[in-house]
Amino acid sequence: MEKDKLYQLKSDASKISPILNIGKNGVTESLIEELNNKLKVNRLVKVRVLKSAEDEKDLKTIADEIAVSTRSTLIDVRGRTVVLYR
């Protein structure tokens, strides 16, 4: 992805709120299904990863897993928030 597009997406992401929370159940099939639906509608989404989700995996691993599972691009990981684009 080109640098200008990436900066624009990060800027756009700063104006939206997280639409899903990943909790103690982690990344489930139903979460991926819901996230796919949100990506179809919005293209750019934020997901908050709660501390309880990090029992077995670290935040970066969870973010990569979500991006691969939804066939989206991981734009940014800030704090506990993951930004995805499709």
Rank of each mutant, 00 (worst) to 15 (best):
E29I: 14
T61Q: 03
D4E: 15
L59H: 02
I19S: 15
I19P: 08
D55R: 15
L39R: 04
K40C: 06
K3D: 14
L20R: 03
V77Y: 07
V49L: 03
Y7V: 13
D64E: 12
R43Q: 03
V47I: 11
M1R: 05
Y7S: 13
S14N: 14
E34Y: 09
D64Q: 10
L39P: 00
D58T: 07
R86E: 04
T28Y: 04
K3R: 15
S11A: 11
S11K: 11
A53E: 10
R86L: 07
G23Y: 01
L6D: 02
Y7K: 09
L31P: 02
Q8F: 15
L20Y: 04
G79Q: 11
E56T: 12
L6N: 04
K60T: 04
N25Q: 11
A63T: 02
E33F: 11
I32H: 02
K10R: 10
E2K: 05
K57E: 14
E56D: 13
N25M: 06
V82Q: 03
S14E: 14
E54G: 12
V77R: 09
V68D: 14
E54C: 11
K24L: 09
I22T: 05
I66W: 00
L31W: 06
T73F: 08
E54N: 15
E56H: 13
Y7Q: 09
K3S: 14
G79T: 03
V83Q: 02
N21W: 08
A63S: 00
M1T: 06
R86H: 11
D55Y: 11
K60R: 15
V45T: 08
L9M: 10
Y7E: 15
Y85F: 10
L74A: 08
L35N: 01
G23P: 02
G23S: 00
R80C: 12
E65G: 08
K51R: 14
G23W: 00
E54H: 13
R48Q: 14
N25S: 13
N36Y: 04
L9G: 05
D64G: 08
I62H: 00
E33Q: 12
S52C: 06
R48T: 12
L74I: 05
L50T: 10
E54A: 10
L39G: 01
D58S: 04
R78V: 08
A63I: 00
N21F: 11
G79H: 07
R78K: 15
P18E: 03
D58V: 09
A67Q: 04
A63N: 00
T81F: 09
G26M: 03
K60H: 14
T73N: 11
I22L: 02
D64F: 00
E2L: 09
L74E: 01
V27C: 09
K40M: 13
E33N: 12
L50M: 15
K5T: 10
L20N: 08
N42Y: 05
V83S: 07
Q8H: 11
N42S: 13
V47G: 02
Y85C: 02
T28G: 00
I75T: 03
A13E: 03
K40E: 12
V68M: 10
L6S: 04
G79M: 05
I22R: 05
K57R: 13
L31K: 14
V27G: 05
K3C: 13
R86T: 06
L20S: 02
S69D: 14
D12F: 09
V27T: 08
